[in-house]
């Protein structure tokens, strides 16, 4: 099964690599430290960096810090054995030393699972807040640190009515809602990074990721595209909770992770970038794309809560800034993103 996974991911990376090759060469011979390195973004980053070692003989070394270890251990067994990768299995809050050889840090440790935020708000906030503080303190003692990329969240923006969000859009107002624990802590972490950039003279960019799909996502996490695929995988009608007009832009994991690498390697310290797809797609259209990728064409049900509501949300980034500053573009269009994702879940990662 591992070979199948490796081959599948390799197809994506090969397809994209030539378009970004020149922007990735800065990474050769460098040492990376990724917190949350076994998550969706973290695993994709490892894939890219190990791909560069494989195909370009890039001589990159990666430290992965994560509480979970199984996926990394299985997927990168050889790389771990050869010492191209090192797995550190503890909580980011407990991070006191970062290996001296590290040049680049990607701070991606946090759980985006809304169920977890609801049940464990304290842990949610403390792992973001204390985890970021621990990382920054440890980073300040490194010899050859070139850049830190802090993964923030698009959840810090206030609800937008049918407008795309720029990096300067209004952020969430202070509210009594406990549902804001995650964005509040992410906003705090961004500010902490800003403080560390100034006080500790650390080179830091932050990104605000939007909506993604692809291998290494957890199908049971309650985000619409995943539930659609999950329904279809189980040979059920695809259930859309509302009227299907909720709007998102969806970016494929391979694009997301290579954008993150380019931003890390070339982004200007102090900048904040939206990362995601600015191509709007409605839930109903997404369901149709998913259905098309299944041979039995599942039916699509609207308003599954039985009581009719038309509560729609609209979450779409304006990515002008990141595209302009870093010369980035979409490598995997929506249709291909979804067909790759469905193939992954139906044929590769069962």
């Amino acid at each position: 099964m591992m070979n199948k996974i490796a081959a599948f991911i390799n197809e994506d990376l090969t397809r994209i690599h030539s378009s970004v090759a020149s922007q990735l060469s800065e990474s050769y011979g460098q040492c990376f430290f990724i917190t949350g390195g076994a998550g969706f973004l973290g695993t994709w980053l490892c894939e890219w960096l190990m791909y560069l070692n494989r195909t370009e003989n890039a001589g990159i070394k990666v430290y992965v810090l994560d509480r979970e270890k199984n996926r990394i251990q299985e997927r990168f067994e050889n790389e771990l054995q050869r010492g191209e990768m090192v797995l550190l299995n503890y909580d980011v809050r407990s991070l006191t030393e970062i290996p001296r050889e590290v040049n680049y840090i990607i701070h991606a440790a946090a759980t985006p699972d809304t169920s977890f935020h609801a049940s464990c708000p304290i842990d949610t906030m403390s792992s973001v807040a204390e985890g970021t503080a621990s990382m920054l303190r440890a980073a300040s003692r490194l010899n050859n640190l070139k850049a830190i990329l802090n993964v923030s969240s698009s959840a810090i923006y206030a609800n937008s009515d049918m407008t795309t969000l720029t990096e300067d859009s209004t952020s969430l107002p202070f509210s009594h809602s406990l549902a804001a624990v995650y964005p509040e802590s992410k906003r705090y972490a961004e500010k902490l990074c800003q403080a560390a950039r100034n006080e500790l003279r650390l080179p830091i960019v932050s990104i605000r990721p939007f909506t993604f799909c692809g291998p290494y996502q957890n199908l049971s996490s309650p985000w619409i595209l995943n539930t659609f695929i999950n329904d279809a995988l189980n040979k059920r009608p695809i259930r859309i909770y509302g009227d299907g007009q909720t709007t998102r832009g969806v970016m494929y994991g391979a694009d997301f992770s290579v954008w993150v690498l380019v931003i890390l390697l070339h982004g200007k310290s102090g900048n904040v970038y939206n990362v995601g797809s600015d191509n709007p797609v409605m839930a109903y259209e997404l369901a149709n794309y998913v259905a098309k990728n299944f041979s039995f064409t599942p039916s699509i049900m609207l308003n599954t809560s039985l009581a009719k509501i038309n509560d729609r949300t609209y979450l779409l980034p304006d990515t002008y800034q990141v595209k302009k500053d870093l010369n980035l573009t979409t490598f995997t269009d929506l249709e291909l993103s979804i067909s790759r994702t469905v193939t992954w879940f139906t044929q590769i990662y069962k």
Binding site: R67, N89, Y90, D91, R93, S94, T96, E130, S134
Partner: peptide, 13 residues
């Protein structure tokens, strides 16, 4: 009994 080690994953707990 005597405790010879107290072991977890977060030194800041």
């Amino acid at each position: 009994l005597e405790c010879v080690a107290f072991v977890g994953r977060n030194t800041n707990s």
